[in-house]
Computed example of a mutant assay.
Amino acid sequence: MPPDAPDLPSLRETIARHGLDARKALGQHFLLDPAVCARIAGLAGDLSGRHVIEVGPGPGGLTRALLASPAAQVVAVELDRRAVAALAELEAAYPGRLRVIEADALRIDAAALLPAPRRIIANLPYNVASPLLVGWLRGAAAIEGMTLMFQQEVAERICAAPDTPAYGRLAVLAQWRCRCELLLRLPPGAFSPPPKVWSAVVGFTPHAEDPGGALFAAMERTTAAAFGQRRKMLRGALKSLGDAAALLEAAGIDGARRAETLTVAEFDRLARLVAARGAG
């Protein structure tokens, strides 16, 4: 179990002292309510012995909740230098359990930051949430699970079923690599400053099978082609992949269908054929 929490200034005091006003350019919307932060940390499940990566901690509301859990260690990756300075106090209060890294999360290998078992738990900056997720899906074999906050619209796209308006490339990539579950919705008022939209937490549990880099790249190419021209029939949308008619025939998929009607399993068949072509 973690030690008793040290005496710390309130999050609002920390923000005021370090001039840590949320910046739109960084997609920042801070979670300051300890109860909400504790609830999000709890959605990640039992963190006993887990090594947790948090991206975009800001003043450290969720960070404090993670440190109050039985997690073995928390590594917080923050781009905003003001927030890094604010988090230094928290780092000093939890020697050996919190490490703050000033870096762009899009440019680092999350799995290389700390030993297994690894979890990623974060209130993601809105402006980089989708590319961060795709990068983590690419390396999901090294991650035990993820609990991530997105704009609600993005969360619904991740969890969308085939043949629904929200279903697209992000849904296929996410559900191909993980079991995805929308766990919690939060109104704008839960954040400071309030965003214009609702937010939602999604839980990701990686599937046991690791497709490997080549097949993941093939799936990225396949979904990009299919949904890049989603109003087109697949026989037209997939032309950039080569002989679309032969590809679809080999996969047993009618070329008159459109991308949003395909299941994740059908996309898997297509991607494996695309990967085999590339290796041939």
Score class of each variant (00 low, 15 high):
residue 235 R to E: 13
residue 162 P to L: 07
residue 224 A to V: 05
residue 25 A to T: 14
residue 61 G to P: 06
residue 34 P to Y: 08
residue 60 G to C: 04
residue 178 C to V: 10
residue 262 L to D: 01
residue 43 L to S: 08
residue 98 L to Y: 06
residue 61 G to Y: 04
residue 25 A to Q: 15
residue 158 I to G: 00
residue 107 R to M: 13
residue 144 E to M: 03
residue 92 A to P: 01
residue 231 R to W: 14
residue 62 L to R: 00
residue 157 R to T: 09
residue 68 A to M: 07
residue 119 R to M: 14
residue 18 H to M: 12
residue 46 D to C: 11
residue 160 A to D: 10
residue 60 G to A: 06
residue 110 A to N: 01
residue 117 P to T: 10
residue 206 P to W: 02
residue 206 P to V: 07
residue 105 A to G: 00
residue 185 R to T: 15
residue 182 L to I: 05
residue 115 P to C: 11
residue 109 D to G: 02
residue 110 A to R: 06
residue 76 A to C: 12
residue 140 A to C: 14
residue 16 A to V: 09
residue 184 L to S: 04
residue 222 T to P: 05
residue 72 A to V: 07
residue 116 A to C: 07
residue 16 A to M: 11
residue 70 P to Q: 11
residue 12 R to E: 15
residue 101 I to M: 14
residue 238 L to Q: 01
residue 275 A to G: 03
residue 32 L to I: 13
residue 150 F to Q: 00
residue 169 R to W: 13
residue 197 V to S: 03
residue 69 S to N: 09
residue 104 D to P: 07
residue 88 A to K: 14
residue 123 N to H: 06
residue 30 F to I: 06
residue 91 E to N: 02
residue 277 R to Q: 15
residue 213 G to A: 15
residue 87 L to K: 03
residue 26 L to E: 10
residue 211 P to Y: 05
residue 280 G to T: 13
residue 8 L to D: 04
residue 244 A to G: 05
residue 133 L to D: 04
residue 212 G to H: 08
residue 91 E to F: 05
residue 66 L to A: 01
residue 69 S to L: 11
residue 1 M to R: 13
residue 31 L to Y: 00
residue 106 L to M: 14
residue 217 A to E: 15
residue 213 G to Y: 02
residue 27 G to H: 09
residue 182 L to T: 04
residue 144 E to P: 03
residue 27 G to Y: 08
residue 111 A to K: 03
residue 65 A to I: 07
residue 75 V to S: 06
residue 280 G to V: 10
residue 169 R to A: 14
residue 115 P to E: 13
residue 64 R to G: 00
residue 124 L to P: 00
residue 86 A to I: 10
residue 74 V to L: 13
residue 43 L to V: 10
residue 259 A to G: 04
residue 222 T to R: 03
residue 43 L to G: 03
residue 95 P to Y: 09
residue 90 L to R: 02
